[in-house]
Design a protein around this nucleic acid. Structure first.
Lengths: 223, 223
DNA sequence: ACTTTTTATTACCCACGGGTAATATAACTG
DNA sequence: CAGTTATATTACCCGTGGGTAATAAAAAGT
């Protein structure tokens, strides 16, 4: 752990080390990107590590320099998707705004994630293909996503931006519509992820907003 | 195709034949019910025919009296789910009512189907696990479902029961929320399929109905 | 009772693909 | 340039599980 460089070397001696580490990480990522695509195309079980390696112009055993098993790769694909969602949750939680606003933001972000390979992993892969501990991790992740959405809805009901409703079923309906994107979205299609996100952000929340109360506010003709 | 019975036999001679055929069909169905459950529990690839057979108190080769291959079983599970949906489509098409009414009816029926094993097959199984011709069949089926939902929406817009909207995305959102039921519904949960169907039938269509026009109709306070 | 057909069992085959051992080669280190 | 480490290859192992052949047991037919 000596960080001091030998005086002789003109170029900083830790650069090669760092660049090597980076090269390694890039290769790891390349494996993951290739694998997730193949898994999505053919399904986890039909996709073979030989074909993953082929697409990367290497051979199967080379993959084991970066991952310990096929399931390891699967789990990491899932983890990346999960992390992207959790990052958005943190961001949304930290931001200002009513419950409805937060929900909209989250729907928007989640829709775009679902239109990516790692996002689609979250709904296209079978939890049963993971080891016990990894299954627990995925289930915990799913629960956190669920909790976040329900939280925004409850928050919105509390602050008056969302009309009272069955929180659980509302969240299921919204998440269902969103998760389904992972099944039908095709990059070569007409709709861009941004367009889908834009649309769903209003579509899925349109029925929830509490309209200005017509009884008390005699003249809510703001527009 | 001679339906007349020999005079000698007191009991109708085609009964044993019929009952045998029925017994066979019942066994076939038992295989499918067991298989679909196992496939849903563990995923198609992890589930083995040996275990299917075990649960039926027979051995693996006995299954081949009823099915030609594992994929055959998978496809038939899918077909049963598909048929249930198509039956509902036919029924809904034939019935009277506005586009909105038909859409609601279809949502209701579809939700209940999704809460059944064979219904869940439609969204939990991987199309890539089927042979080429069977894949085509499933994709055609998916398209027909899509077309039906879009048809009701278009119909509703035309007859004024549904406000104009993006038909494709509306259908995707509704079908997504419905299909997701196949992922989260658990028989041991609190909600019954009927309750879910009831709720979703209004929830997923609430934002679509064309409210009485406030400009022209001066007093549409029907309720 | 004898034959034929249906249904099931036991015992086996073998393709597939995940994973490993032995080893070569390229890449840094000093 | 030696020496070490990281990375890749070739060749192989072997568990798993779908599927089959040979055959037995049960049921139906005559």
């Amino acid at each position: 752990m000596d960080t001091r460089a030998p005086a002789a070397a003109a170029r900083s001696p830790w650069l090669p080390f760092e660049s090597r580490r980076r090269a390694r990480d890039e290769k790891r990522e390349a494996v993951l990107r290739t694998a997730v695509q193949l898994f999505l195309e053919q399904g986890y079980h039909r996709a073979t590590l030989n074909e993953v390696a082929d697409r990367l112009n290497i051979t199967k055993p080379a993959l084991y320099n970066y991952f310990r098993s096929k399931e390891d790769i699967l789990f990491e694909c899932w983890t990346i998707g999960q992390e992207r969602v959790e990052d958005q949750i943190s961001e949304t939680d930290a931001a200002e705004g009513s419950g409805l606003t937060k929900l909209r933001r989250m729907v928007h972000a989640y829709a775009e994630i679902m239109a990516s390979d790692f996002g689609a992993s979250l709904v296209r892969f079978n939890v049963a293909d993971l080891s016990e501990p990894n299954q627990k991790s995925t289930l915990a992740g799913k629960r956190r996503i669920d909790r976040a959405f329900r939280g925004y809805i409850e928050h919105g009901i509390a602050d008056g931006s969302i009309r009272p409703c069955d929180v659980k079923l509302t969240a299921f309906a919204i998440l269902g519509a969103l998760n389904w994107i992972g099944h039908w979205y095709k990059p070569e299609g007409e709709l861009t992820p941004a367009q889908i996100a834009e649309d769903f952000a209003v579509r899925l929340t349109a029925g929830l907003e509490k309209l200005p109360d017509k009884k008390k506010a005699a003249r809510p003709r703001t527009k």
